[in-house]
Simulated scan of single mutants.
Amino acid sequence: MKWKKYTIDTTTQAEDFISMMLSDLGIEGIEIEDKIPLSKADQTEMFIDFLPELPPDDGRSAVSFYIEDDGSDQTEILKKVKVALEELRSTVDVGSGIITSSETEDLDWINNWKKFFSSFYIDDILIKPTWEELKEEDKDKFLIEIDPGISFGTGKHETTQLCISQLLKYIRGNEEYVPAVKNPKVLDVGCGSGILSIIALKIGAQSVVGTDLDPDCMISTKENMEVNHLDLDLGKFYVGNLIDDVELQNKVGTEEYDIVVANILADVIIPMAPVIPARLKKGGYFITSGIIDFKENEVKKAIEDAGLEVVEINHKGEWVNITARKN
């Protein structure tokens, strides 16, 4: 598939105005390039654990949009964009407003990444993308199928693998370390594609509740539960921020869960830690990852300050898992 990329030379001041204008014209797939440092709020929302180094902000911005190159005349839509840009000049400094164009091949944001996701094992569990054919020799394996769609969570990232390993250990039990948590109720904070909820159910959880900030995650999780032949009544999933959404906290419940799992980020886990003990039953476990190694001590302190006992810390690459217990 071919696409036309059009880039507007503008100012950082006009970015939001232009983005809204393009959206009003029915144009989707907007890309903004500037030198404005990300805020802490942006960092948390975009799942970035450390901020990139940028040159000084010079006030310039490039706002790009994409239109499918299907051979039709795009003059009319470009004319509308130019007229709207001129109208914006009375409201905000749009800079030069010059529009340049280029062509790009096979711009498929939803599917191009699939080439990097193939089947893999964690312990005895085979995690397979839905679009990959199941090999004959794998047909008797313990199988989890996942299609993340536009949500986070293939299972391949070190943070997800750390959480999966801990779920296996605590739900199945480990004779050398910990007895099994039989038929646990599990809360999955930041459920993404639903992979941790699905694995929990497949290895013995009686039910799961998931939360996420992104409504698209609810769709991905539901679809992945169906793919894995799980009864949808086994899970309830809510959109919202568990940190400060009292209504969501009430929906999720108090002292309901044997295990709370959160594969998110250090800067989210830290403010979330105080609300976790109220979700856990006595003796329940908080399994978390998404923690970059240099923030390990900061997260550990927040979890301990919330009244939980850290029982183990695991590392995979530069990522950390902290597992704690409510005594």
Rank of each mutant, 00 (worst) to 15 (best):
D57M: 03
T10R: 04
I287K: 02
Y238K: 02
K128W: 01
T10N: 11
N112P: 05
P55Y: 02
D233W: 05
Q43N: 13
T11I: 12
E158W: 09
L168G: 05
Q161C: 09
D212W: 02
V92N: 03
K80M: 12
D73W: 10
T100Y: 12
T75C: 06
V83C: 04
D216Q: 14
G284S: 08
V310Y: 00
E87N: 15
L22T: 02
F286P: 00
E223N: 07
D305G: 00
E223P: 01
N263W: 00
V268N: 04
L265G: 11
L88D: 03
C163Q: 09
F294H: 11
G240I: 00
E137L: 10
I67D: 01
I291V: 07
D231W: 05
L126K: 08
I270M: 01
M46F: 15
D188I: 02
I264Y: 01
D305M: 01
I18K: 01
A41D: 13
W3V: 13
E298H: 12
N224G: 06
P37R: 10
S61M: 12
Y170H: 14
L78T: 02
P184Y: 01
K182Q: 12
K236T: 14
I18T: 06
A14E: 03
N314C: 11
S151W: 06
E86D: 13
K281H: 03
F142E: 14
I99D: 03
D216H: 08
Q206L: 15
E132F: 02
I67E: 02
I313Q: 06
D216R: 09
I195M: 04
D49C: 04
P179A: 05
K114R: 15
F17Y: 14
E226V: 10
E15S: 08
G59N: 11
G192Y: 02
V261P: 01
E309F: 03
S64T: 05
T75S: 13
S119L: 10
S102A: 13
L162K: 01
H229F: 15
Y285N: 09
K301N: 00
L88F: 05
W131G: 13
L22W: 00
D93F: 06
Y66L: 09
T75W: 10
E247W: 05
W319P: 01
I198C: 06
E45R: 08
I27D: 14
M1D: 10
I30T: 06
